[in-house]
Design a protein around this nucleic acid. Structure first.
Lengths: 327, 327
DNA sequence: GATGCAATTGTTAGCGCTCACAACTTTGAT
DNA sequence: ATCAAAGTTGTGAGCGCTAACAATTGCATC
């Protein structure tokens, strides 16, 4: 920086002012400094800068199951939005989710001096842990609706589940089962509630609820059982991967989809259009979710806004696994 | 730090020594300092530390298509290995791959003062761009075999392709087509070569080569064409997603897998076991790949090793999409 | 031409840490 | 008891930057 100042014939402070876009620099000087910067290929030292500003221009992203479809796309959205805003993104993936591992990871980020943290750990206990932590930086929790202490960005999963069930109801189904995700996942719980609500509102009993684990393997296993007992005419499956397993099980058991049983998934992964048959499902935009997280964070960081929330709305994609109920 | 020193009754330098595990500190003093640290909840300031050491304890990961199965799992492996070694991981995802965007991202990392960079941009041009850059930190390129200037970690894709084709040859197939990935992907090129090699070695002509784009949609499209012309009895597909599309196309066209045509995929995603029928494919361990990258980087960082390479070996997983050729 | 005010630029200190070196303390051999 | 060598601790400087303040300049006003 001293070198730049010398070349431009000014003081180091003026260089700093140019770098930080301070108003009171004459355009002539600014130009000279900028030229010196490019000439010398100068890059400002981040460490020195954050030592004095106490800002690191870094956002930490804490997540579990980061390689899954949802989380990895959320990360992508977060990353892009953050980089567009001039922030670095530091990632910590949890191998195992416990209050301790979460606290550890947050501490890891605090050590690093991040300016804000996005948490995508989709278990309800997470929020309590986060509320118990006094991080001195803004926090956004994915999946949380947001409250006094914690900002939240979320897909309206309940609405998504409504959409799915309503579609089946519209087709004349009344016996609509649900193969859910693990109940200790926020998303799974919200989808269960949406399913129950829609059914209850329509005057039907939400009877058949099976708890799954998101995997195709589990979808297959439970699919075989459902195929054997045939107590439902339609099945709302909490994600596309389990739906894949279900379709395979039904295929093997000679249950025809959609004529014998209708199936609706959730997520709309790109592959779902190529299942046999192509899957009717609920699409959610994870990248937008990630972007909204950063939006929330930047609002708090730059405008000093307090807590807030953002919601992304899912939509139904009808393909070939749903058909009118045979009367 | 001054506070800790005061509480422990030593100088700030002694505190620093304890923090850095310097040998010449008496165990009594060390204990006293450590107690003061926990008592005060002291955390060392990363910015100040890296200002003087010129080390940031951060590793940059530069990638494209980061939400895909391979890259996201590689990132996971990188992240875990890095965190175990006490490093932070900063991520930059490229929206678009050009020499400029790569250079930008590297510059972004240099600004941040990363200690090392892992690049997973699976296009051959990448390596030339990287060689042209004078980053003053160790670089590991995923997919590169490594050379004088550039360390590399890679899955032996050629071997994987061999495995797939040999399996089909063993079943008596001789007309073995290949639906490849985009030829400007390193992985796609390596798999094509493996396919060609294996066939040539066995004395057959590698005739039917179709270039795809990794997507299920493309697998479906090309699958329909192959079903119509029936010039092959077996198809080696460069990834599982395209294989999904192919299976769907064959199903629709009334081509029975594996009796009419055998299909082998590549990747072994967890879902592949639940395709209809379950997919024979080549498994590769992306997390291990990521871990090896960090291993390479740390070797260079800590032991001053020069360039080197690591290879992960894929293996064949036989399921139900392959059967002996009907004579 | 003197005066005041704003716009622009320079000077100094210090963020929290590690490095190099100086100073002190112990140990063990003479 | 004496001395050197090793082990242990303290002191001062400075990494590259920005904030606060001081100093200078330009320019309109009386």
């Amino acid at each position: 920086m001293e070198d730049v100042a010398r070349v431009a014939g000014v003081s180091h402070q003026t260089v700093s002012r140019v770098l930080n876009n301070h108003p009171n620099v004459s355009s002539k000087t600014r130009e000279r400094v900028e030229q010196a910067i490019t000439e010398l290929g100068y890059r400002r030292n981040t460490a020195a800068r954050s030592l004095v500003t106490r800002r690191s221009q870094t956002i930490g992203v804490l997540g579990s199951e980061m390689a899954q479809y949802g989380p990895s796309h959320t990360l992508l959205g977060v990353q892009q939005a953050a980089r567009d805003a001039g922030y670095f993104v530091s990632v910590a993936a949890l191998r195992e989710v416990t209050p301790e591992t979460i606290k550890d990871a947050i501490a890891h980020f605090m050590d690093q001096g991040v300016d804000g943290i996005v948490v995508t750990v989709p278990h309800p206990g997470t929020f309590d842990v986060l509320r118990g932590i006094t991080a001195h930086v803004p926090l956004v929790a994915v999946g949380s609706v947001g409250d006094e202490q914690l900002s939240g960005a979320t897909v309206d999963q309940r609405h998504g589940a409504h959409l799915a069930v309503q579609h089946l109801l519209d087709l004349g189904h009344t016996q609509i089962g649900h193969l859910s995700g693990p109940v200790d996942w926020i998303d799974a719980a919200a989808r269960i509630e949406g399913w129950q609500d829609a059914l209850t509102q329509a005057g039907f009993e939400p009877a058949t609820l099976i708890e799954g684990d998101w995997s195709a393997e589990c979808g297959y296993r439970e699919g075989l059982r459902i195929a054997a007992d045939r107590s439902v005419t339609a099945l709302f499956v909490a994600n596309d991967q389990m739906a894949l397993g279900v379709l395979r099980a039904f295929h093997e058991a000679g249950v025809h989809v959609p004529n014998d049983i209708s199936v609706v998934g959730f997520d709309d992964q790109p592959e779902s259009a190529y299942f046999i048959p192509p899957l009717t499902t609920v699409a959610q935009d994870f990248e937008e979710l990630g972007q909204r997280c950063i939006g929330l964070l930047l609002d708090r960081l730059e405008n000093g806004d307090t807590v807030s929330a953002a919601t992304v709305t899912p939509r139904l994609v009808v393909r070939s696994t749903t058909a009118p109920a045979s009367s």
